[in-house]
Design a protein around this nucleic acid. Structure first.
Lengths: 345, 345
DNA sequence: GCACCATCTGTAAACGTTTCCAGCTACGGG
DNA sequence: CCCGTAGCTGGAAACGTTTACAGATGGTGC
């Protein structure tokens, strides 16, 4: 039978039990435990009593008293996507170092869920929120303005919204990749994108298109597919694009790129000799498959870390006036999936 | 300037502000907001006041009163490993459905961190804990016995420890994979394992060894490498094993297997014609590379779900006597990475 | 018109802390 | 020898809820 354990939640020692056992007041107990001044004798008795009872301070009561929970919340669309895992990791590490715990919400990018998270800041469950929406609606903006506590957004907000944010430069990132493909000799560059109605989806499309123009290539809508951000979707999309005989497939993230690579392999097409493949995010996945994927690092770890730091700063100085916005610069990481095309092909 | 937003944390409307505005007592406010009986007129005034003030109940105060936080904690070794991501996902979904939030701890499998998490149950920050240690020391067992609240362990505890747990059957799982490799014609089956001093490491090794014996193959220590559970390690280990010319590489998880596959590709060895590769966990990674990996599903999602359910049950009936233990049966998922060997080779 | 009952309401205590304030003790200086 | 002071200590209030209890209100049946 689970002993002391589970049973009467309410049987735990409190500062009152300690006070009784040590024969002092609860005020003294509190002071001793918080390292404020006390007579040697008092300190000893309190510490002994606390140790004997196995006392652990009740964090809830403490939170109620001083208005902070030492918890941070991170809400992201999908914990299955390695980009967000990288962010969770970075955030958790900053949070931990600062003595904060991390609350996690996977919203599936459902707008109502995101709004609920934003509103729930009001329940004082956590001291601050990092949220990463991939669609940004008017309702989001309104909710952000009305937020009952500090929020940092990972993503691109309209400039006039007075909220700290950390952005990736998807436009430049996509452009980087396309230029690289062009420079390594590709001329029919297909694009497997995420949903068109998301911010990253729109931006990556814009970057793709702009880069084509830069390179003097014409934009061919039949080389572009919109789908969602998963591996399977990448495989299907690439499959569908193959009869347009592209010489490169640029994908809006690494999951799509892995799917695409799989589809090419399945058709016995060689990467990169027959078709080059590039992804985005430079997540752990980029080095998981074969050949290792060229990818654009959009700084997910960096963004997570920065977001957490911004949030902590904001917690330190609640009403410093100006919202901070940083943008992580994209970085092209070239690997084997985009070598030169085979001489003839 | 962030308006009402960040500023005086302590400016939020409370039940008292509502009471004043509505001209009733705080007790009535509480009753109305909790849907207990009240006169029509009272209900209306309270609801209007609450709406006008944008009231959100303070969860901390509520928790203090009724001794529950509606938070669950999940502590796992490494959020970078897809297995744990699968668990997080499953747990989060069960938790959410039951109205609980999820607190996350990534412990890096550091024993002291795990013990700290266990002890921190006493601070009443969450109502229960799911912990997934890969090493189980005496200190763990002692801490589990002394736990100040409900705990479910994902992993294999000694039977006498009175704690709910959910296990994978790694031994049987490894054996399944090895038998499959044998049946598809492999005779020199190398093994890339995780750390020898972890429970999964030991068990998978045991399963590997037992299966070899079953098949009448002799155990050759030079075909076995212990390393840690990452992709890079898998590549290095496979690389090192290659000069022992195995005809199959069995890996203790999918990350190792992807690494191994990469090493084989880099040497221009064909999978599965020249060397078969199999992994374990059947995580998202198994279908990420090429060829898709044969893997043993150890039920990570299932285990996460079950652990969360057990915890919720325990929360419902704190001192039901007997600890529950379930074991998820392993399931071999055959994919292209383990087809028959090339006829001659 | 009165007593009774049901219904609703308000007061106050409680959850476990921290902290303000005032009182106590002991000490040293004048 | 007395007083001022420094150093500790205990009482009590406060954080924002929920809820037991008792009091108020209104309606109904006689």
């Amino acid at each position: 039978m689970p002993r002391t354990a589970a049973s009467p939640q309410r049987g735990q020692p409190t500062i009152v039990s300690i006070a009784e056992r040590a024969g002092v007041s609860i005020a003294s107990v509190s002071r001793v435990l918080n390292g404020l001044g006390a007579r040697r004798d008092t300190v000893e008795r309190v510490e002994r009593a606390a140790a004997e009872l196995g006392y652990v301070p009740n964090a809830v009561a403490r939170s109620l008293k001083d208005g902070r929970t030492r918890q941070l919340t991170f809400a992201m669309p999908d914990i299955g996507n390695p980009v967000y895992v990288a962010m969770v990791r970075a955030i958790q590490s900053v949070a931990k170092a600062a003595g904060y715990r991390l609350l996690l919400h996977s919203t599936d990018a459902v707008v109502d869920d995101e709004l609920a998270v934003l509103r729930s800041l009001g329940d004082r469950t956590s001291d601050g929120l990092i949220i990463c929406p991939i669609r940004i609606t008017d309702a989001h903006i309104e909710a952000l303005r009305a937020a009952a506590g500090p929020v940092v957004v990972i993503g691109s907000l309209p400039d006039e919204v007075p909220v700290d944010s950390v952005r990736a430069d998807s436009v430049a990132g996509a452009s980087l990749a396309v230029h690289h493909l062009y420079e390594t000799g590709r001329r029919r560059i297909a694009f497997v994108n995420g949903p068109a109605d998301t911010v990253p989806g729109r931006n990556r499309h814009e970057g793709y298109r702009a880069a084509l123009a830069d390179c003097g290539l014409t934009y061919d809508p039949s080389l572009v597919v919109h789908t969602d951000f998963g591996i399977e979707s990448g495989a299907e999309a690439a499959e569908a694009l193959l009869h347009r005989s592209p010489d490169a497939v640029f994908c809006a993230n690494d999951q799509l790129a892995l799917g695409a690579a799989r589809a090419l392999h399945a058709r016995a097409l060689r990467i990169p000799e027959d078709v080059a493949v590039a992804g985005m995010d430079d997540s752990a996945l980029a080095q998981a498959g074969w050949p290792p994927l060229t990818s654009v690092d959009l700084g997910s770890t960096e963004r997570g870390r920065r977001a957490a730091e911004l949030l902590l700063e904001r917690l330190g100085a609640p009403d410093s006036p100006t919202p901070h916005t940083t943008t992580a610069p994209p970085r092209l990481v070239v690997r084997a999936s985009t070598g030169r095309a085979a001489p003839d092909a």
